[in-house]
Write a protein that binds this DNA or RNA. Sequence first.
RNA 1: CGGGGCGUGGCGCAGCUUGGUAGCGCGUCUGAUUUGGGAUCAGAAGGCCGCAGGUUCAAAUCCUGUCGCCCCGACCA
Length: 576
Amino acid sequence: MRCSQLFYPTLREVPSEADVISHQWLLRAGFIRKTTSGVYTYLPLGYRVIKKITEIVRQEMDRAGGQEVMMPIVQPAELWQESGRWDVYGDEMFRLRDRHQRAYCLGPTHEEIITTLVDADVHSYRDLPLLLYQIQNKYRDEIRPRFGLMRGREFIMKDLYSFDVDQEGLQVSYEKMREAYNRIYQRLILSYRMVEADSGAIGGNASHEFMVLAETGESEIVYCDSCEYAANVEKAVCSPAAAGEAAGGRECGEMVTISTPGLRTIADLAEHMGIPAEEQVKTLFYTADQVLVAALVRGDRELNEIKLKNALGCNELLMADEALVRQQCGAGFGSLGPVGLKVPLYADLEVPLMAKISCGCNRDDYHYSQVKFGRDFEATAVLDLRSAEVGDPCPHCEGHLLKMRGIEVGHIFQLGLKYSLAMGAAYLDKDGQQKPFVMGCYGIGVSRTMAAAVEQNHDQDGIIWPLPIAPYQAIVVPVNANKAEQWEAAWRVYEQLKNLGVEVLIDDRDQRAGVKFKDADLIGIPLRITIGPKSLQENQVELKKRWESENRLIDIDQVAREVAEIIKQADQVLIG
RNA sequence: CGGGGCGUGGCGCAGCUUGGUAGCGCGUCUGAUUUGGGAUCAGAAGGCCGCAGGUUCAAAUCCUGUCGCCCCGACCA
């Protein structure tokens, strides 16, 4: 492809709407343009990357036994009413009506469609397991689209749905997908980590996320410094061993009331009363499906709302309104505590182990100290409610936890019977018995993966595409395309590369060399062959890898083969 | 939805407080000179200042409404 004909409008300046790295570079390099909030058009380079990613995903899905289907984007309300999700999904679903006022939505996901399909046409255990997948646009009317492709309202996603006869079958399908996912991210040459995850609203049992590691990631993950354990902080288990360390050795005397005028935060009390945060207890109020509840964690800990929500089994968990809390407890935020409280009280595992506790008094400007769990107050339940922190012991080994950030690009779930029961989807087993399908679902955010790849692979000059997903693998740059000698040499190399199956650009624009180098760097083409006047006299050209800083001089007749070889090696990862 | 900010040539911005016929840089087009890391000179095109009302002799500027976009929060692939 000639650069003079390629539609890749590059920008010198960062559009003001973009403030995350991937969004900035993808816009500047002419890969995407915004159509409306959270909805993007993929320009030729961007779409080539999307096609590269989907092709790798497709190959691995097929390899794992998946069969590709195409499902509708417009879905009837009835299917969603049947599964019960029409009402649950809320404002995040794009809803529409046809001319007859029948209700539809733009599919945010496809469990309902696929379950209905399989139920209608799969009747026997002989037809299972069945793995069906799709790679399509999906729609979620995000509360707030942001970060460019990272959180769009229209996005490209691969979803595979597995149907098995029983839990053991599901386990096998799940393992297949886990392996396929690992292969995919290795083939994409992205630095990633598989982590234990919360299964959220989609439901089900086991769940893993695939995180592309990046400073700018939205998700925080913890991992063990000595074993394979890794988990989303939402999910990470805080083992009792961690709590044990909080016990301390000091004796607890009688509960005393202390005057604490104007001291409202943990830090205030630590600073002015000399009470270390780890001897305080934080009392946090929530309304869980309209019911006021209180949660207790040690003063220096963070409450994990996901854990609390899961423990309560509620649909909606919101920070409680201060007026309501004052009405029920007699004090405002900053002076609240568990003693004498009449709302359901959920304590973190560490709370009962604390030697002595300081906490609010439920009376403004007063606190208690020398409080003890079990003596001065009880809890409705004692649970793992806090977020894991750096240095916590690993739940699986003697190691300790570390933290890093990641971009969630894949998520696999064991759904179990959730949808098959809700939608009455069943098969006949060997004994002629009706059994619900045991399902799994396995998603990959394709467009998000593209953004994540940029987030992880860039420098001050632009994108550095991993070879397997680069829009073009190589670019031939004659320093001066007007010099016949250079142009002819460049064209010859270009033709050779094409003949070797290399996806290659040739920069035939009448531009100064600097402009061409800047653009090549910006759009991130991995291999650049520069044809310059000096080296050409020696019958040599320069080969530069985008991810390295030095050039290498190569004989002009060798360069095409060399480039093809580098590409072949990158492709060799895991194929076969 | 709550809080904050912004809409002025393709992109980035100034002008608005104190109303008076719209400006800068980049990009684009023409020509010349250039040609190894975003060239130089000369010329040119391109904007009902988001939209709709209002105030005024006069509105990018003041007022009201409305639409869109971005950021922070609740949500998530």
